[in-house]
Design a protein around this nucleic acid. Structure first.
Length: 200
DNA sequence: AAACAGATCTACT
DNA sequence: GTAGATCTGTTTT
């Protein structure tokens, strides 16, 4: 299969930092990824796949190299790159990016905000790229959505790392990666109040 | 058929 | 920096 699918066949925790600097193209807009988060499957209480396979998270259980898009808060979409290895439902959430092509299109979709805010946040990124549930399961082969890995990985001082945003479970795992000093990186938000005790 | 829950965003101070 | 809207898709009975 393709070199891309091969590179994505590793666990999400390994793939995530390598996606920094990658270019994602969809619907006439290209972003350079500046912030991502790794979600492992059964081992990760914060993952949608933690409680097993359902119609919603089905794509995560499939082969690496597909797009997992989910819907949340009644109005937002967020996109992940499905990783491997086979049989493991791991994925990388695309949290933010810098629009490097299709600026006009992105501005129009986002309502003419400052450019660094066009794709600052997972739902904003999807909106800028025009991604919706219709793109769930799309393969990143270039037909509708294309992913191009960077020639050189972001590494060393250029890469920062910390806890993931907005989750209540496993909030201590430093599985969020971003390009240091980037204005397009979304602001950190701690999770909401802990879950109430289970009822009887 | 009903209840749930939300990997967020915008607005506002 | 913080509050709260928001309302559909998803899951469970």
């Amino acid at each position: 299969v393709s070199a891309l699918a091969d590179a994505l066949s590793a666990p999400a925790l390994e793939v995530a930092p390598r996606l920094l600097g990658a270019h994602l193209t969809a619907n006439g807009v290209t972003v350079r990824l500046t912030e991502v988060e790794a979600y492992e499957g059964a081992d990760d209480p914060a993952s949608h796949a933690f409680r097993g396979r359902t119609p919603r998270n089905d794509v995560m259980f499939g082969p690496a190299g597909a797009l997992y898009v989910y819907f949340t808060y009644g109005m937002h979409y967020c996109a992940n790159v499905v990783c491997g290895p086979e049989g493991r439902a791991s994925a990388v959430l695309l949290r933010a990016g810098e629009v490097v092509d299709g600026l006009e299109e992105a501005r129009a979709r986002r309502g003419f905000r400052p450019d660094h805010d066009l794709a600052r946040g997972p739902a904003k990124l999807c909106q800028a790229l025009g991604l919706t549930l219709a793109d769930n399961g799309a393969v990143l082969d270039g037909d509708e959505v294309a992913l191009e890995l960077p020639e050189r990985s972001i590494a060393g001082e250029a890469m920062a790392r910390g806890p993931r945003v907005g989750i209540r479970e496993a909030a201590d795992r430093p599985w969020r990666f971003w390009v240091a000093g980037e204005r397009t990186v979304s602001v950190y938000r701690p999770a909401k109040a802990p879950r109430p005790q289970n009822r009887l």
